[in-house]
């Protein structure tokens, strides 16, 4: 009689489960570590200098609540236009002696090409130096937080007196909404949402007044709201805030 060998070999079914689990683990790791393209989201807050859409009570004063703002400068009356007959040609003044030499240099025919090049280079250097100084000054102001706490300034949180909190929220929503990869040929999709923001800056109520027929677009709006919520500051005055917002493929607007 032939002996029958008893094999202790696991079937491929167990390995299938093992392989599936391995794939799931790798996918989760890749998702959490942002290995996959398109999954990386830049969560750093973007501060807009939206001087047009962030109205203040008195733009020239910066903030009425600040108390440190200087008094508004007196508005100068517009210059009166004279009649052509009243206009006079300015009297020709004699050139000062100091400028005499320069005048002589500038006179056509006497300035050589080399002098012209030098003068041009000097002008360019001066311009460059002015730009660098301006950039340095702006960077210093940003670093020291100058302007923070004033409505309409880059460091403002949107909660200062005079700030438009709805515009601030819209700005955050727009920022989050732009991170969504929305690709749709239909530009007429609209989602209207009414948000209620609690005193801690969290969304405590959300009502969809209108949804689009595209579930993917609706989901994109939902994700944008969730992402934007992380950056919300508490509403001014320590109360709740309620406002409607309109999401379209082109952007976010206030209702």
């Amino acid at each position: 009689m032939k002996h029958t060998l008893k094999r202790r070999e696991p079937g491929p079914g167990g390995m299938l489960v093992c392989s599936f689990l391995c794939h799931a683990v790798i996918f989760l790791i890749a998702t959490n570590l942002n290995f996959l393209p398109g999954l990386h989201t830049d969560n750093s807050p973007v501060y807009y200098v939206d001087v047009v859409n962030l109205p203040v009570a008195n733009p020239q004063a910066g903030s009425p609540a600040g108390g440190t703002a200087s008094a508004p400068p007196a508005v100068e009356p517009p210059p009166q236009i004279k009649e052509p007959s009243q206009m006079k040609l300015p009297a020709v003044k004699p050139a000062p002696k100091a400028a005499g030499k320069q005048q002589a240099k500038l006179s056509p025919g006497t300035e050589t090409a080399q002098e012209f090049e030098e003068r041009l280079a000097k002008l360019e250097r001066d311009t460059e130096a002015r730009h660098q100084a301006a950039a340095l000054e702006a960077a210093r102001r940003r670093a020291t937080g100058a302007g923070r706490g004033q409505a309409g300034m880059p460091g403002a949180t949107g909660t200062e007196a005079g700030s438009d909190y709805a515009s601030y929220i819209r700005s955050r929503l727009e920022d989050a909404f732009r991170q969504e990869d929305i690709f749709t040929p239909d530009r007429n999709k609209v989602v209207e949402v009414r948000l209620t923001i609690g005193r801690t800056g969290r969304i405590i109520g959300k009502r969809y007044d209108r949804s689009s027929s595209d579930m993917m677009f609706n989901n994109a709006v939902e994700r944008a709201i969730s992402r934007a919520e992380r950056d919300f500051r508490p509403p001014p005055g320590g109360g709740t805030f309620e406002h409607g917002f309109v999401f379209k493929p082109q952007g976010v607007g206030k209702n």
Partner: peptide, 12 residues
């Protein structure tokens, strides 16, 4: 998934 299952199975 199936390929990796076969690879594991065949390795063993």
């Amino acid at each position: 998934v199936v390929s990796w299952a076969i690879i594991f199975f065949k390795l063993l």
